[in-house]
């Protein structure tokens, strides 16, 4: 890891600029979209698919502590949690609590 001021320069150039140019382009592009235009349907679909692709990757290819846990446990916890969430009338609290409880129980059972 590089030290000192260079790290801050890396964060500004490869972090802040690399991310915020897309936000700025989004503002400029979004300002031309009408509230119910056909183009907005497409933009919404692309935005949703992108976010869900990132999300699914966090579960399938996690970094950090979860990287050592078995894939079946993470997928099982998320999948069963989603089904329970749908059955419980799409309550977000249920959709978060059930997978976390299943994951923790699984990790504990596996002795990790």
């Amino acid at each position: 890891m590089v030290d000192g001021w260079w790290t801050y320069i890396v964060i500004v150039v490869a972090g802040f600029l690399a991310t915020d140019i897309w936000r700025w382009l989004g503002v400029l592009a979004g300002n031309r979209l009408d509230d119910d235009s056909e183009a907005l349907y497409w933009v919404r679909a692309v935005a949703t698919a992108l976010v869900m692709a990132v999300t699914a990757k966090l579960i399938v290819f996690p970094t950090g502590t979860l990287a050592d846990s078995p894939l079946w446990l993470r997928l099982g916890a998320a999948g069963i949690g989603f089904v329970v969430f749908l059955c419980a009338g799409r309550r977000v609290v249920v959709g978060v609590a059930v997978p976390i409880v299943l994951l923790v129980a699984g990790l504990w059972w596996l002795g990790r």
């Binding site: 349907y41 919404r44 679909a45 692309v46 949703t48 698919a49 976010v51 869900m52 999300t55 699914a56 966090l58 579960i59 996690p62 950090g64 502590t65 979860l66 846990s69 993470r74 916890a77 998320a78 949690g81 989603f82 969430f85 799409r90 309550r91 977000v92 249920v94 959709g95 978060v96 997978p99 976390i100 994951l103 923790v104 990790l107 990790r112």
Partner: peptide, 28 residues
Amino acid sequence: GALFMMTPVYFVASIWASATQPVVKIAF
């Protein structure tokens, strides 16, 4: 591990719960 798992499962539940248009559910 539980802290890390919080983010993705929250996105799954909240984006599905807030999806009113079918196009969003298909893209999801």
